[in-house]
Write a protein that binds this DNA or RNA. Structure first.
Length: 561
RNA sequence: UGGCCCAUGGUGUAAUUGGCAACACAGCUGGUUUUGGUCCAGUCGUUCUAGGUUCGAGUCCUAGUGGGCCAACCA
């Protein structure tokens, strides 16, 4: 059997090369390293799928490491939320680590650097240091403290650790090259004084390592082989390697940082800072608002983890800039929900329909298929009566041939029920249609096997029996931003593009089988879309979120006309 | 006035590493359908430009063009 060669992304090619050049497969190790300063979003999901996917592919462990080197912004609540999201996506980490686990080791290594003349304590203000840093086109100048003696540096650094100094008075810097073309190599800061309690180490420390000093060394301590991050860290790689050079021992695995392009989703923003802004300005109702591109928001919206993983697999990973259309994400959630979501009937925008020749007071049950694509899904009974609600958009007094719905004198089938014919309608004083009167063919009942029941009519409408229906709050969502790339405009702030109509709350009428629906239950309201039960739902009041609509060919036809 | 990264259909990614440019989505046509859904069949369309190396270039080289990143005691 010949097998087509599997398509690899560029990171997999790098790993395959490493495997050929001496790495043992058993040495492979990855990590997902979020900072616990916010909630994970769809971009992180992509990174999670990448790292954990690589782990699965190569049978390699993947650590979940919290990059918690800045106590000013980090909280335990975020740690818990992040763990929940990773688990929900279906991944398991090998060990749970924290950069803060390594504070002592990092400190000891820093002392070693000082002793080797590779680091010094600078006692200038940040403004002074920024000035000496130069610009991308101009070299920097050395700090007047650059040549402090080892003894002096050691004493000062130890004083910093003991809390002898105020914040901002001293920092520890690596002694590299103020003339380096790479700005990050111009004597980068390794430690700063921060009199803040850390969510894990509390007040044990008042000096904290910077990202660059902590990250690579953490990778090294965990013996991570491939440290994957986004492209904006590319210039950090030289520094990552320089720091590793200072402590690397030849018998250990030497981690390598490699960079990939961040995935950008259209009509949203994926930046913790900007998402936080949306939350703080009450543009949305919290991090898990169903309009948010956060994993918690997508979960509440009704997305399945499977659909998010499938999305991440489809878009792949590369180094070029990208803007992925959110409709691809929507495709994947439809694709999955189509397979698993039970079909039910719900009328979102009700119009009363009276069947004039149906006996008053009569009620009967019709049999409905739970999922036409899944023969194991079974059937249920739905109550039918003389007075029903249908969708307002499904009736017009007159319409052309393309309108496969109800019009005066026209026939249509009520899903799982009877064929009806619209006879007349009633309007209010403003001319709005408020009721439609129709007649039904008693012999046309679905599944009855009669000749009439087998008749083909062009349209099929969903409906609910008014006296049996349950009213429910339904939250409809539109794109959060009107622009496909709201945060890429130089002259405008992304907040200028917030869609004022991104949330619409309506009262809908749903079939009684939904009475005991539980939070997170996902259903398809036939012909309308996929919906899930929100956590605001109570036994007395059902609340649904619209996850995504069905593919809507009719909308395109209507648009053309 | 510097260094580095990137460029493949409308979108996102592939291309057996120099050998017939493919997959998914979107679009369009038709078929099936008691969801204008699903499913099925078909179809449209691509290597930024100019040189060079080569029997052969999306892939290698040079130049150009376009886009991005880099001057936080953030990560």
């Amino acid at each position: 059997m010949s097998e087509a060669r599997e398509a690899l992304n560029f990171l997999e090619h790098i790993i395959e090369d490493d495997l050929e050049n001496g790495y043992q497969k058993s040495q492979l190790r990855f990590r997902f390293p979020p900072e616990p300063n916010g909630y994970l979003h769809i971009g992180h999901a992509s990174s999670i799928c990448l790292n954990f996917g690589l782990g699965l592919k190569y049978g390699a462990p993947v650590n979940l490491r919290f990059d918690d080197t800045n106590p000013a912004k980090e909280e335990t609540a975020y740690v818990e939320a992040i763990k929940k999201d990773v688990k929900w996506l279906g991944f398991s980490w090998d060990t749970e680590r924290y950069a803060s686990d390594y504070f002592q080791q990092l400190y000891d290594w820093a002392v070693q650097l000082i002793e080797g003349g590779k680091a010094y304590v600078d006692s200038q203000s940040s403004e002074e240091m920024a000035e000496q840093k130069g610009t991308p086109t101009e070299v920097g100048t050395n700090s007047p403290f650059r040549n402090r003696t080892v003894a002096e540096n050691l004493a000062l650094f130890s004083g910093m650790k003991k809390g002898d100094f105020e914040e901002g008075t001293h920092v520890l810097r690596a002694k590299i090259d103020m003339g380096a073309p790479n700005m990050l190599m111009r004597d980068p800061i390794m430690y700063r004084i921060l009199n803040k309690a850390h969510h894990r180490t509390n007040t044990d420390w008042c000096i904290y390592p910077m990202y660059d000093w902590a990250h690579g060394e953490s990778d090294y301590l965990e013996q991570v082989t491939h440290s994957l991050c986004t492209l904006e860290f590319l210039p950090h790689r030289e520094l990552y390697d320089w720091f590793l050079d200072q402590i690397y021992e030849a018998d250990k695995v030497r981690p390598k940082q490699r960079e990939f392009a961040r995935r950008n989703l259209s009509h949203t923003v994926v930046s913790k800072r900007k998402l936080l802004q949306l939350v703080e300005n009450n543009v949305v109702n919290g991090w898990d608002d169903p309009r948010m591109p956060t994993i918690s928001g997508l979960r509440r919206r009704g997305y399945t983890p499977e659909s998010i993983v499938a999305f991440a697999d489809t878009i792949g990973i590369a180094k070029r800039e990208n803007l992925i259309d959110v409709s691809l994400l929507e495709f994947h959630v439809r694709d999955h929900l189509n397979k698993i979501a039970p079909r039910v009937m719900g009328v979102l925008n009700p119009l009363k329909l009276v069947i004039t020749n149906y006996p008053e007071g009569k009620e009967e049950y019709v049999t409905a298929e739970n999922n036409p694509g899944d023969s194991d899904a079974g059937f249920r009974e739905v109550p039918f009566s003389r007075e029903l609600y249908i969708e307002k958009e499904d009736f017009k007094e007159e319409a052309n041939r393309k309108f496969f719905r109800l019009k005066l004198g026209g026939e249509v089938r009520l899903k799982n029920g009877y064929i009806i014919k619209a006879e007349s309608c009633t309007k209010d004083t403003e001319g709005n249609i408020i009721e439609v009167q129709c007649t039904y063919d008693p012999k046309s009942k679905s599944g009855s096997g009669t000749e009439e029941s087998l008749r083909k009519v062009k349209g099929t409408l969903h409906w609910v029996s008014i006296s049996h229906a349950i009213s429910a709050e339904v939250r409809l969502y539109d794109r959060l931003f009107t622009d496909e790339s709201p945060d890429t405009h130089k002259d405008k702030d992304f907040m200028d593009f917030v869609n004022p109509d991104s949330l619409q709350v309506i009262t809908a009428y749903v079939e009684p089988s939904l009475k005991n629906a539980k939070e997170q239950d996902r259903v398809q309201f036939q012909r309308m879309g996929y919906f899930c039960v929100d956590r605001d739902s109570t036994p007395d009041k059902l609340v649904f979120n619209k996850t995504v609509g069905l593919r809507d060919t009719w909308a395109k036809i209507a648009e053309k006309a």
